[in-house]
């Protein structure tokens, strides 16, 4: 069933039926007006797109889907509390350098400093060619065994060699100062290496930067003011059914699967309402799809006694939550 959309984006072409089908390892993705508008704005203005939503709502998948639709390179990184700006731009591998100092013979000699540079995600985006040789030349990189492979999914379209979809996932997990540290590479398309040299982006670079947040932590205002915002709301029953139809396009028994899908979707919405009233994390879209897949595989419907166990393991994920949910009724 095609998603109803009234907005036709200018800077990219929506897939047929407004839903990207499964493409290799890329999961299906259903677009809506808000998503299309936000992405179109990000492409028109060159601003990063900050996508917020509950876990499992499809934030990270949007980046993969856009890379597939646009046929651009795809690079991604997931932030943690230990992530520093140098991890995303360039840093030295001190341990390897110290190891080589101890183990390399006099004849072999030490490698030049640049051979110990570890290009981060921004270096790969701004200038893939120099990142692959760590800032040296191709011949030197070959000589010192310092050449690197592209760490993401490269485009198959030659004309899109300098066009990249960059996913910075879960930025709210990073330390509070890190988003502000990203402003220079995001705004100016350049950064400074540890050796003081500057890495600038190639002239015909095009980037779509998608940054996701679970909103577990507030982001700095200076960072938020530079991003286009998109909030992925929890879908209703009909949208869940639509999403399921794209994830499972050819079920064996279409009628039975359709009934099962609607029943599981109804259950999911009911559990979301319960979780919200108890101030718990509600089950997500991905959990709904997991539950549906399991029901179909085990040939179980929502009335089956095994469904109670499925609810607990997939949708609620906490033994105490179920008792609380029952007692609260």
């Amino acid at each position: 069933m095609p998603t109803e959309m009234t907005y036709i984006p200018k800077h990219f072409k929506l897939p047929p039926n407004n839903a990207l089908p499964r493409t290799g390892n890329i999961e299906p993705y259903v677009f809506n007006d808000n998503i299309a508008i936000a992405v179109d704005i990000a492409l028109a203005t060159g601003r990063p797109l900050l996508v917020a939503g509950a876990p499992g709502s499809g934030k990270s998948r949007l980046a993969e889907a856009m890379a597939t639709l646009l046929e651009w390179n795809y690079l991604h990184t997931t932030m943690t509390s230990r992530t520093r700006l140098e991890d995303l731009t360039a840093d030295y591998d001190h341990l390897l350098r110290m190891h080589d100092a101890q183990t390399r013979s006099k004849e072999e000699g030490m490698k030049p400093d640049w051979a110990y540079l570890k290009p981060g995600i921004f270096w790969w985006v701004f200038n893939c060619a120099t990142a692959s040789v760590r800032g040296g030349t191709a011949e030197e990189a070959e000589k010192h065994n310092a050449a690197l492979d592209y760490p993401g999914l490269p485009t198959q379209v030659e004309a899109n060699r300098n066009k990249t979809v960059l996913l910075i996932d879960e930025i709210d997990k990073a330390e509070p100062d890190l988003p502000n540290d990203l402003l220079e590479p995001l705004d100016r398309y350049r950064f400074t290496r540890p050796d003081g040299k500057q890495v600038d982006a190639v002239k015909d670079l095009e980037i779509l930067t998608i940054i996701t947040t679970n909103r577990e932590r507030e982001l700095p205002a200076a960072f938020m003011r530079r991003c286009v915002g998109l909030v992925l709301e929890a879908p209703d029953v009909d949208k869940l059914v639509n999403i399921a139809e794209h994830h499972f396009p050819k079920p064996k028994d279409a009628d039975a699967f359709s009934k099962l899908t609607r029943a599981v979707a109804d259950k999911t919405i009911s559990l979301q309402e319960q979780a919200n009233s108890l101030n718990r994390r509600p089950p997500s879209t991905s959990e709904f799809l997991d539950a549906l897949k399991t029901c179909d595989k085990l040939k179980i419907d929502v009335e089956h006694e095994a469904w109670q166990l499925i609810e607990q393991s997939i949708l609620i994920k906490d033994l105490s939550d179920k008792n609380d949910a029952t007692n609260a009724e």
Binding site: H11, I41, L43, A44, T45, G46, R47, D187, R188, Y189, R190, A201, L205, E206, I207, L208, A222, R225, R226, C227, V228
Partner: peptide, 20 residues
């Protein structure tokens, strides 16, 4: 498509004008 404008500051009226 994406406009390379270095030294970008906060999103402002120009971005809104571009979008509209």
């Amino acid at each position: 498509m994406t406009q390379r404008t270095p030294n970008k500051t906060d999103i402002g009226l120009s971005d809104l004008l571009i979008a509209l």
